[in-house]
């Protein structure tokens, strides 16, 4: 029993929450189209959280994600205004983000700076660049319709954003769980010195993790801009804490104490479902935060209890 709680407690909690909401609001919440829509609503948060998962796999934190989301959105519109075609603009944004990720990863691994500090600094720099690019204003206009379509509408019956989530999650899951680099990342996160002595190269692997996180954050910035049709220099500010909340929830699911992609998806889903369900039920926004925080605490405590019982 305790083993079950420990392994699948968080997933069970998600299912329980969905069932509870479905009973409370069978027509609005429980409808298939709403459940599909939740996958769209959780996409942006989940992609940022997946980036955070990869960084957490090497045992580090990336506090620059929120800044990179804002940066990505602003830069892509900035490039549109400069007349750069959409595909090129997107590639340029992702490349710029990769550079930021590489810098964070290099500083953290080569000079053994605490990742909290290094990414806080890099994030602050990125924030400055973002405000400088847009002079502090929200950027609107000159956004091509074709570009907007990558963040809205449906494809083969599912929202386009959901497809992005499926694609990113699948890639991240393959990277972390299926191919060699994932073993190296988890080895570094598990025991950096042991991994080093076993021949795992710390610097390039850590840099890789930070680059993935930065690129995914920038992708979210692009998708957010496509979804809402404008870009705000603080538009990504809300993602950092929720993304790490999702990762921490996910660490209590499936695998003990390790950041993992399926777990992060469950974590992001819990946060999205609570937001969706409580809004549908007309519960105040303030209460939603209280409930989300309580669930995170409960998940961690239940896992500890499960551990002691086992």
């Amino acid at each position: 029993m305790t083993g079950f709680v420990r392994r699948f407690g968080t997933l069970a909690a998600l299912i329980a929450i969905i069932i509870a909401f479905s009973i409370a609001s069978p027509d609005a919440f429980g409808s298939p189209s709403n459940l599909i829509n939740i996958t769209q609503q959780m996409t942006l948060l989940a992609i940022v959280a997946i980036g955070a998962t990869v960084v957490m796999a090497v045992g580090e934190f990336d506090l620059s994600t929120a800044s990179i989301v804002s940066f990505g959105g602003i830069l892509v519109v900035f490039l549109f205004k400069a007349g750069v075609p959409a595909p090129l603009a997107c590639l340029a944004v992702l490349a710029a983000a990769a550079v930021f990720g590489a810098v964070s990863g290099f500083v953290v691994s080569r000079f053994e700076v605490l990742s909290f500090i290094a990414t806080l600094a890099v994030g602050t720099i990125i924030g400055g660049i973002t405000f400088w690019l847009c002079e502090g204003a929200t950027l609107f206009g000159d956004i091509p319709g074709g570009f907007r379509d990558i963040g809205r509408g449906t494809m083969l019956g599912l929202p386009t954003l959901t497809w992005w989530l499926i694609g990113v999650a699948a890639c991240a899951w393959i990277i972390l769980d299926k191919v060699e680099i994932g073993r190296r990342l988890y080895a570094i996160g598990g025991n950096r010195e042991a991994a080093r002595l076993a021949g795992v190269r710390i610097v390039p692997n850590t840099m890789f993790a930070f680059i993935v996180s930065a690129v995914l954050s920038a992708l979210v910035g692009i998708l957010l801009t496509a979804r809402i049709g404008s870009a705000n220099p603080t538009g990504g500010g809300g993602y950092l804490l929720s993304a790490y909340a999702a990762v921490f929830l996910g660490m209590t699911a499936f695998r003990e104490g390790e950041a993992n992609v399926p777990g992060t998806l469950v974590g992001a889903a819990i946060i999205a479902v609570i937001g969706n369900g409580l809004t549908i039920l007309g519960v105040s926004t303030f209460l939603q935060d209280i409930i989300t925080g309580t669930i995170i605490l409960a998940a961690v405590l239940v896992r500890r209890a499960g551990k002691q019982g086992a």
Partner: peptide, 26 residues
């Protein structure tokens, strides 16, 4: 019949998600 405290930063997307959910209900 429904109200929503808009979160800042990111008010546009926050408004969008809230409205999607409110439309579901009402």
């Amino acid at each position: 019949i429904a109200d929503h405290f808009v979160k800042v930063p990111g008010p546009v997307d926050d408004g969008r998600v809230a409205m999607e959910n409110i439309l579901r209900q009402h």
